[in-house]
């Protein structure tokens, strides 16, 4: 029984770890898109202002 509980705990830990990885991927992708858009918007506005 102890072994079964240990296995379940290990399974849960593994699942949690992968959920953490998935959130990490989502945060990184969203962060990159945000950086891209802000950097592009600022530089484009400067260029339009220059023109």
């Amino acid at each position: 029984m102890e072994r079964a509980a240990h296995t379940t705990r290990r399974e849960q830990n593994r699942k949690q770890r992968w959920v953490g990885y998935a959130i990490g991927v989502a945060i990184e992708s969203a962060g990159i898109c945000f950086i891209m858009l802000v950097a592009f918007a600022i530089s484009y506005l400067v260029a339009v202002w220059y023109r």
């Binding site: 802000v38 950097a39 592009f40 530089s43 400067v46 260029a47 339009v48 220059y50």
Partner: peptide, 16 residues
């Protein structure tokens, strides 16, 4: 972020 913005601004002004 800062250097991307700066180099992008130089390039964007150059393209304009």
């Amino acid at each position: 972020f800062i250097t991307l913005m700066l180099t992008l601004t130089i390039t964007a002004v150059g393209l304009q």
